[in-house]
Nucleic acid binder design. Structure first.
Lengths: 371, 371
DNA sequence: TTCCAATTTGAAAGCGCTTTCAAAATATTT
DNA sequence: AAATATTTTGAAAGCGCTTTCAAATTGGAA
């Protein structure tokens, strides 16, 4: 059973390809008068082949318009040169920025990124992880560390390096240990969500605020959201304060949710004087809604965001927020994975810095003399 | 030269895998007591195998935690189940939205998407296309039809289906024929940039405007930008008007560029009464800058955007703009490619609709009595 | 029950590359 | 110049799967 593939013999006895079939390495070898092994070497370690042959091969490659067959390469070399990435969403510059940086860096290393968006759905995420694993990615990048044991089992079964971004393994009381099996220490590239949230809260506290509210992203399966909430709570607790149940709104990550939550909060019995948003879209929504309700920020209520996306600085009032290093995360995650793939035993990079960016949406609570 | 791979024989003579090596189809076959062919069939066309065997195989797969090897599959079946996509950028919800929809739809069909961002750079785009082709993608999605002949040659050489989005093949005088070799009719999923631009212009014209300016995205290598500019020009020409040279600013696609251009325009000798932005970030910048300059929109100048990204409706004044169907494009492109991959000879889908969304940033020109 | 058509199965040949091993060619030393 | 060390090359064996072809099994029809 030869020739499932239509090789047709030309008049000179040379094998040509039937329409639509591209040249193979063997064709190149024949065309250049060398062995397939040599062509392969030209592709993978050019200096291990004599210049004159190398030239012949290069020419043959050009003439035949040869493009190596990725799958065959992957099969033989046991590496696909692909890195998988699953993001919770891609329709915002938040993860998009990280992806862009990640992809750019990974491309530098000759790798290609296979991407998927899980729409913040753990089940979908797991399916995507499985898919990527099947696709044969050499490494994996995931957002957040919280996911099913099953998902991690799959990855470990494949034995490929992976990195988890947007979280850090900070040695705080709030670290992940309490929520993850002890043997699970993932490599992280990210920042300390807990500390960053505690930070803004402290700042607000220092302005004199005592009545807080938080609009938090959906917490189930989202450790970033949970840590931020816990960070806020911890900072409040240090001053013997707390978040009243009706002052905590947990929602999907949309601007519209921010609007609703804000309205709800400000129309309540005891409106807060400061609103901490666990994700920036909430803050945008809050600001928009404030304008609509005729409330002024920060005179009537202070609002802080989280992430410092591009819009924050342009809003009026400009938004006080926490700058998170998404581009850096993308790049660093890429570099980390690349090093691991080159066999280097790189250490977990240290957590990245976040920065409290104080702008115009925060001030002393109403009624205070400015302290 | 056997066993480059460490197969170790267990005591029962059964082949197990050394650490880190995952089970293969052959392992599954042995474990289930069937031939490899049967396992393969279970994976690819389950109903061609008897239920009892199928069950055994399914169990074996589970027990061994078997994950098919994508590259091997791709090599043997000559299809990789991957689709490549190159976007000009990913750090905005514009292309991100399209990508998200594209990826979701493609995943439905059991495909996976390999993505790359070209940073609006043709050379980088071409490199990415080459890379994706090497990766063995079964199909390709690109933004815009304008790119080097070389790039198209590469794709055609591989003989895979591809689709070009964000543009249409509208049968207008402005169609692509003049800029592309006649034999190049690409499958398009998109809308008519020219007509959409002409549309807003007509609207502005109908409000009484006669002094126009345009802030256009960089045109080189970007047919969307070019078509939009031409659309505006054509509409103006129909009224014997034109865009003064100093009333046309061509820039990268950033908010900051919009700010600068706006300031420049409004501080000029003869400021326009209407500014058409070829991309929405420009309009945002314009609105922000107007506020800073103490100009009011639309009283002093009307501003229109292009794309209707999420922010447009929340701005004050809310932005009049053209809604472009990016989610639909993503989905439709995916479906088109999927059909082609299933061998169906689908026709080019018809151009999608755009919609002029009139909000508050446009009005009669200053000094007019409201017509 | 016997025989033939229809359905399931397995053996084996690749898919296009990489990589080992040994042979051939070249460079270096004595 | 001969002998040895080094570098280049090629032959061939897979990588893990799919798919053809023929053999084995099954289900009906006779």
């Amino acid at each position: 059973m030869s020739g499932r593939r239509d090789k047709v013999r030309g008049q000179e006895g040379q094998v040509r390809r039937a329409e639509g079939l591209s040249a193979t390495l063997e064709d190149v070898a024949r065309h250049a008068g060398v062995s397939p092994a040599t062509v392969s070497r030209c592709l993978n370690s050019p200096n291990s082949v004599r210049p004159n042959k190398r030239e012949k091969v290069t020419r043959a490659i050009q003439e035949l318009n040869y493009v190596p067959h990725g799958a065959a390469r992957a099969l033989a070399s046991r590496k696909s040169r692909m890195i998988g990435a699953v993001f919770p969403s891609l329709d915002t510059d938040l993860f998009g920025g990280a992806l862009e940086a990640f992809q750019g860096e990974v491309a530098q290393g000759g790798y290609t990124v296979v991407v998927a968006s899980s729409a913040y759905d753990p089940a979908q995420e797991q399916r995507h992880i499985r898919n990527l694993l099947e696709s044969g990615v050499d490494a994996l990048m995931l957002v957040g560390a919280e996911r099913s044991e099953e998902a991690y089992r799959l990855i470990r079964a494949k034995g490929i390096p992976y990195v988890v971004i947007w979280v850090s393994q900070a040695p705080y009381p709030h670290n992940l240990a309490e929520n993850l099996a002890p043997d699970l220490r993932h490599d992280c590239v990210g920042f300390d969500n807990w500390a960053a949230a505690a930070d803004v809260t402290d700042y607000l506290l220092s302005l004199g605020h005592r009545h807080f509210a938080m609009i938090s992203g959906t917490i189930a399966g989202n450790d970033r959201a949970r840590l931020r909430l816990e960070g806020v709570r911890a900072a409040l607790k240090a001053k013997s304060l707390d978040l009243a149940p009706d002052h905590l709104h947990e929602r999907p990550f949309q601007v519209e949710d921010g609007r609703q939550a804000f309205r709800c909060l400000m129309q309540g019995e005891t409106p807060p004087t400061a609103i901490i948003c666990g994700a920036e879209p909430f803050a945008y929504g809050a600001l928009f809604e404030a304008k609509e309700m005729g409330l002024s920020v920060p005179e009537d209520v202070s609002v802080v965001g989280f992430d410092d996306m591009w819009l924050a600085a342009h809003l009026s009032p400009a938004l006080t927020t926490v700058r998170t290093p998404r581009t850096k995360m993308g790049r660093q995650a890429a570099r980390f994975l690349l090093s691991r793939l080159m066999g280097q035993a790189v250490a977990d990079p240290p957590p990245l810095e976040t920065k409290l960016v104080i702008r115009k949406s925060t001030g002393p609570p109403p009624g205070s003399s400015g302290l």
